[in-house]
């Protein structure tokens, strides 16, 4: 795979959102979690979304991940209007074109590592043998080939998050969305996760990572700052500090 980084060639837009609002209707009051957001994510972007708690980061991620739909505004995912899609079509977009990494890993506790990674392929309707092969390959990318038959509770936090990354990666998504992926990890293990993200970025993947830690955001190439549901700033990182595992 190529190490694109920034090139002169015009990159394809993956996500285009215009004037998006998300209002939560709590009966008596309305919470305007997102209030007029414009954002473009291009192929092979590596974006950190930052902002104080309650600024709307998770709400934005849910919208980007097609887990939720905006109450106003437009959302094009790879050129297709998400607003017009029914629930099954959204599920298929999530299945084939989006990879999720959660703060609390969200692995299925009773399933083996391999089966956790296989799951998106099950919902894609892939046959068993092909599934297992793909899942094993992907586990290799995150360095967990030897843990395929373990259960999540037999792994460390960092290993669990790597399994979750493999699961996000297994269907070759157009974009990987990670909401506070290091939030439940100590800083050293967090760094390990960022090393994997760096290599995914270099392999040409598109990454959006929500974080409130500057140390984590430094590894990205672009930082979007939210405040009170609006974009406060959207700038490239001046001197990116690619995560590297010095010990390895």
């Amino acid at each position: 795979m190529s190490t694109t980084g920034t090139t002169a060639r015009a990159r394809r837009p993956i996500i285009e959102i215009r004037d998006v609002e998300r209002v939560y209707d709590l009966g008596k009051i309305y919470v305007r979690a997102l209030d007029g957001i414009d954002l473009d994510i291009l192929e092979n972007d590596y974006v950190a979304v930052m902002g104080p708690s309650g600024s709307g980061k998770s709400t934005l991620m849910n919208l980007l991940g097609c887990l939720d739909t905006p109450t106003a505004g437009h959302y094009l995912f790879e050129g297709e209007d998400v607003a017009g899609m029914d629930d099954d079509e959204l599920a298929d977009i999530r299945n084939r074109r989006i990879g999720f990494v959660f703060q609390s890993f969200n692995l299925l506790p009773r399933a083996t590592v391999l089966r956790n990674v296989e799951l998106p392929l099950v919902y894609a309707g892939m046959g068993r043998e092909e599934r297992i092969e793909r899942a094993r390959e992907t586990l290799g990318i995150v360095g967990l080939s030897d843990r395929a038959h373990h259960r999540p509770n037999e792994l460390s936090g960092g290993q669990r998050q790597r399994v979750a990354i493999a699961r996000a990666l297994v269907n070759n998504p157009s974009v990987i969305l990670a909401d506070e992926p290091t939030g439940n990890l100590d800083s050293r293990t967090g760094e390990d996760i960022m090393v994997i993200f760096e290599s995914l970025y270099r392999a040409g993947n598109t990454l959006i990572v929500v974080t409130h830690e500057d140390d984590i955001a430094r590894h990205a190439r672009r930082v979007v700052r939210l405040r009170d549901g609006r974009i406060e700033s959207d700038e490239p990182v001046e001197r990116p500090a690619p995560a590297e595992n010095a010990l390895r």
Partner: peptide
């Protein structure tokens, strides 16, 4: 939460 996870990974309502 598991239902949410499965839905995020592409499980449809019918599934």
């Amino acid at each position: 939460r598991e239902i949410g996870t499965r839905r995020a990974l592409g499980a449809r309502r019918g599934t």
